[in-house]
Nucleic acid binder design. Sequence first.
DNA 1: GAATCTCCGACCCTTTAAGTCGTATACTGA
DNA 2: TCAGTATACGACTTAAAGGGTCGGAGATTC
Lengths: 155, 155
Amino acid sequence: MLKLTKKADYGLMALKYLAEHPESPALSAKDIADAYGIPAQLLAKILQRLTKTGLLRSHAGMNGGYALSRDASQISAFEVIHAIDGPLFITSCTKGAHGCDLTPSCTIKEPLARVNETIVGVLKSISIHDLADQEGFAARAATGPPAKALVTLNL
Amino acid sequence: MLKLTKKADYGLMALKYLAEHPESPALSAKDIADAYGIPAQLLAKILQRLTKTGLLRSHAGMNGGYALSRDASQISAFEVIHAIDGPLFITSCTKGAHGCDLTPSCTIKEPLARVNETIVGVLKSISIHDLADQEGFAARAATGPPAKALVTLNL
DNA sequence: GAATCTCCGACCCTTTAAGTCGTATACTGA
DNA sequence: TCAGTATACGACTTAAAGGGTCGGAGATTC
């Protein structure tokens, strides 16, 4: 139904939380999970995945935890979603290299592939910093035209 | 994983097929299903739903079937998807009127809601005619800049 | 060496999508 | 009016994926 998974949601929330607490050298999975009321073990697995893909750095032991490996403005929402949910395909068709398994004559996938690219483009244009900076967010939304992303779809 | 359901895919394919055969007064669910190799009974149910929402007109009996209720250029991909899959929400959060059931402090949903609107905008800008008109599609893609949709995302 | 923490794989449960079946109903044409 | 063809609709079954849990192994600090 064109929905992000909860895991991806959790991942974004966790990174946002980390971005909001740059003073701490590291935050444990439990800390973050408690802050949002999400299952700690599940979040841990998500953070481990983000660590493997290089978005986070982890530190075991007491006072250990996770920290952003880059500045929040250098991490896009797309990277997070891709790391957690894998490649982003809007259709069941376009899986990897070539087209439909179902119908070779499925001409519908081409325009939808462009929609897909558009969505990816939008998600790439959003950084964790954008998510965390609520005030700036509201301010910009109020003052008007500082469009962050301008996406074109060439049909 | 941000994927359209197969039902929505099927629906779009069927409408495209109808748009490509304006000479026939009506095509049966079986005709269309055979053309694409998809389960006839399943497609029938999808077409019935599209009929209920007014995108198609049906006619029972011999030589009966389905026909577009409007011109293909007046039916957007969004309408089809909405009719089949229901309202389009990118997050598990934004369900209907108000926010998260999980965490009241989930501030992430606001920027994502804008992403959601962007996607909806893109889908609304695509008509069934756009899907059906493959030649024009290719030609436009080759010649360059006749951008059909220009979507802005104000973060 | 005890308390915290990450790490990782196996497992279970629930939901949803996908597809099937059966039957009632409507229309057409001979 | 009867047979054939089609839609209409709901209940049911099956398959897959998401969401979440459990248990143990390996770091790290105090």
